[in-house]
Design a protein around this nucleic acid. Structure first.
Lengths: 151, 151
DNA sequence: TCAAACAGTTTGATAATCAAACAAAAATAA
DNA sequence: TTATTTTTGTTTGATTATCAAACTGTTTGA
């Protein structure tokens, strides 16, 4: 039992580091050199489809609104994000991607989809379903752990 | 097929974010409040057992030696890491954990093992095998991708 | 109407990061 | 041997990431 735990653990750690590193490197050698991996994740959290408020995006990313404001300042300057004050509640800021932002979003999304597609390439439909179940378990455990976290 | 890819992808992303967030939060509410999650990973990369040079650790972490030097300065100041000049080659610096560093290393390692153990506890043998198979595929894909990366 | 609550912004401090300039030591070439 | 090049690590300057706390403007509710 223990060796399996160690093995799964080292694969998870290694995968984690690789994904981050590859994403970073891919960005830096693309036409989007001026975007860091953190900014990429902010763009991802803002998303293509609905408008999201600053608070919503900050919560999704697990950072404070202050941090997000600073980051969005840079992304607006670099023309990836638009800020729009809500008409119905003038305190609220809605964030949306620019054309350039949406292009980058799609590129990043493609990387992720390719990655997963390759992962399940050699699996049958049923096996992929079971992998999915494993991920659901892991996710469930983490969500429960999160709730038990102090404050 | 496509919807499954999307679903697996969002679970992976969510799992990654949760692990990072839980690690960070766990550290900040422990006796090791003065260590950030990045510093924790540096301590992990230095490791318990062999001595490693600055270059080796930087490579393992995927950061420049300059960045690591700065980080190690802080970890030495906070008494988690020792710097030792090599006797045989006076250019080389060997990094090693202090007693406090080793204590923290073990704590972090335990968190990881508990996480995996808890995750596969609820799974059947077959499910755990398939999770493992999925991870191996994913890891293989990432290693191949890394090799194709420019320089 | 006016105080409290809310949504974001700004600021000051610190950490993380890189590239480039630098210093010291070792290896290689002359 | 001496000079040059390469290697290992440090320092520095710039930018980003982050938080907490102070702040601004807006809305809500007493």
């Amino acid at each position: 039992m223990e060796p399996q735990i160690n093995e799964i653990n080292s694969y998870l750690v290694s995968i984690f580091n690789d994904v981050l590193m590859i994403e970073e490197r891919t960005l830096q050698t693309s036409q989007f050199k001026d975007v860091s991996i953190k900014e990429m994740h902010t763009i991802d959290a803002i998303g293509m489809y609905q408008e999201h408020t600053t608070s919503e995006v900050a919560k999704k990313l697990g950072i404070t609104v202050g941090t997000l404001t600073v980051s969005v300042n840079n992304l607006v300057r670099k023309d990836y994000v638009n800020r729009v004050r809500s008409e119905t509640d003038r305190r609220v800021v809605k964030l949306a991607l620019t054309k350039k932002g949406r292009l980058l979003y799609r590129l990043h999304d493609k990387f992720h989809r390719d990655m997963v597609r390759e992962t399940i390439r050699e699996m049958s439909e049923a096996e992929a379903e079971l992998l999915m179940k494993g991920l659901v378990n892991l996710h469930g455990f983490l969500e429960r752990t999160k709730e038990q976290l102090p404050e």
